[in-house]
């Protein structure tokens, strides 16, 4: 209910009911989800993860082989 109807000079300039303007502008209808582009960091993360795994594996193997040789000597 519009208790505080906005003043107007003529009937033609009388504001339309809110339900009508909302319906005209489509506000009342369920809005589809807006799809926005997000920055894709998956490739960067993949490279970093792979590098870390390789470094850890190489370090571990190096340490393991060096220790094995030391023990044999």
């Amino acid at each position: 209910m519009q208790n505080d109807t906005i003043s107007y000079d003529t009937l033609d300039s009388r504001p339309l009911p809110k339900w009508l303007t909302d319906q005209k502008s489509g506000v009342n209808t369920i809005q589809p989800q807006k799809i926005t582009m997000k920055e894709d960091n998956s490739l960067k993360i993949s490279f970093i993860a792979t590098t870390i795994i390789i470094l850890v594996a190489v370090s571990f193997l190096t340490f393991y082989i060096l220790r094995k040789h030391k023990d044999q000597a």
């Binding site: 339900w19 009508l20 319906q23 005209k24 009342n28 209808t29 369920i30």
Partner: peptide, 11 residues
């Protein structure tokens, strides 16, 4: 538009 309002899905 009035009919559309009354028949629309209740958001």
């Amino acid at each position: 538009l009035m009919i559309d309002y009354l028949t629309s899905e209740c958001s």
